[in-house]
């Protein structure tokens, strides 16, 4: 079966992707929520970190099979 790291990669890429897309949408429309430190756009760079880590997990576990 696929190792757990594969599923960790999938969930991080899926959630990171959704957060990134919504962040870009709000940024593009100028309609983003005025939370504290919103000017740093944490949703953009943090979701970027999630996607990178998720992709690394997916690449490392793509050919792995656990007995």
């Amino acid at each position: 079966m696929k190792p757990i790291w594969y599923f960790v990669g999938l969930v991080l890429v899926a959630m990171g992707g959704l957060i990134m897309l919504s962040g870009i949408y709000y940024l593009a429309t100028g309609n983003y929520h005025q939370t504290v430190l919103a000017n740093l756009h944490p949703e953009i760079w943090w979701s970027g970190v999630m996607i990178i880590v998720g992709v690394v997990f997916l690449i490392l576990s793509r050919n792995m099979i656990v007995e």
Partner: peptide, 14 residues
Amino acid sequence: ARYYPPGLVGLGIT
């Protein structure tokens, strides 16, 4: 609630 915009709120609650 103070720091997280939409998307990140969903992640925090998840």
